[in-house]
Nucleic acid binder design. Structure first.
Length: 221
DNA sequence: GACCAGGCACATC
DNA sequence: GATGTGCATGGT
């Protein structure tokens, strides 16, 4: 991690924040909603997740007790708009069951200890991979970890800030090392990466008007 | 009709 | 360790 590298990362943040402003992530009212949303949004657009969460809300199912009591098949029916609903119903159930059996239903207990300890605990739950674990830690537990999504990797690679073969954990550690350890910064930065990706890094998108225009860049990547 | 969206687990080489 | 596939909906 060179100072130049770190400066470029910060320049990206500054440009994105200047262009897009605060993103107000995560769009959820409670830690429970963050966790449910994080699982439902796996490989799924947020719009469809909102429909699913709307169904859960209408069914009065947005509480740990109700999620625990709800039959998996009924849960699957409610979250159907978010896609992969059988898989995701199972994942939600596994999360809730683990929260109860291992931590007595206490998120505080689940999130206790060092960042790495809490992260390992989450990753051990079936259905919680690195990105979902980091989203939960950052947006529900307010811990300073970086959420590395596909856009983030693509953008950093295009700007020569990570090697082409960089893995999730490499990118996460690089970003953590390049930035001050501030939850608010990590929160905003991930959301800004997603916004940039949606607007300018889709398959059909062009770089016209991209806030990162002028920075070293390879559009072919 | 292909392709994508705020991934993950599993099989296979 | 790297790559491929199923999961499944709704939008472009």
């Amino acid at each position: 991690m060179t100072q130049k590298h770190s400066r470029q990362i910060r320049e990206i943040f500054d440009r994105l924040f200047e262009a897009f402003g605060p993103q107000h992530w995560w769009p959820a009212r409670t830690p429970l909603e963050v966790i449910v949303g994080a699982i439902l949004t796996q490989n799924t657009s947020w719009r469809n997740v909102e429909r699913a969460i709307g169904n859960l809300h209408a069914a009065g199912a947005l509480s740990w007790a109700k999620l625990r009591a709800l039959p998996q098949s009924e849960l699957a029916r409610l979250i159907q708009p978010s896609g992969s609903f059988r898989v995701k119903a199972k994942r939600l159930k596994e999360f809730v069951n683990f929260l109860w059996t291992a931590h007595g239903g206490s998120l505080e207990s689940l999130f206790a200890g060092s960042l790495d300890e809490a992260r390992k605990r989450l990753l051990a739950i079936h259905g919680i991979g690195p990105e979902t674990a980091d989203a939960i830690l950052l947006y529900a537990a307010r811990r300073a970890t970086f959420v590395v999504d596909a856009y983030t990797v693509r953008i950093l690679r295009r700007h020569f800030l990570i090697p082409s073969g960089a893995r999730y954990e490499d990118v996460r550690k690089m970003l953590k090392a390049a930035l001050p350890d501030e939850v608010g910064l990590f929160n905003e930065f991930h959301a800004l990466f997603v916004e940039l990706g949606k607007r300018f890094c889709g398959r059909r998108a062009t770089c016209d008007g991209c806030p990162l225009a002028g920075m070293p860049h390879d559009a072919m990547l």
